[in-house]
Write a protein that binds this DNA or RNA. Sequence first.
DNA 1: AAACTGACTAATA
DNA 2: CTATTAGCCAGTT
Length: 110
Amino acid sequence: MAKSGLYARIYGAVKRIPKGRVATYGQVARLAGVPGHARLVGYALHSLREGTDVPWHRVVNAQGRISLPPDPEAGGFQRALLESEGVVFGASGSIDLKKHQWKKERESLL
DNA sequence: AAACTGACTAATA
DNA sequence: CTATTAGCCAGTT
């Protein structure tokens, strides 16, 4: 398994996400201090599991949709958690990033 | 050390 | 809106 401290930074960034908000992988990566490593964020979160103090369910892809497969034990669980926090899902299972994305600061290139 | 993989993103069709 | 392509880089094998 990974012995890098990058995971710890990613987890720390995810922990900073306010309740009722979501953040994209790229955004979390940037907050973690490793811009460009959106995939690493996903990789790190995939290593997680229940019992962690990291609100991994608040992390979604840039399209505002859950990247995980529609597994009732994983993806569906994430959706339920977000809905429980007040996040509204669209009919296609997509989140309205316009309202729920954690806008602390946006990418400079957009 | 080299190849393969991946919970991504942005651009294009 | 979805599908496809290319770029990206650490982690895993």
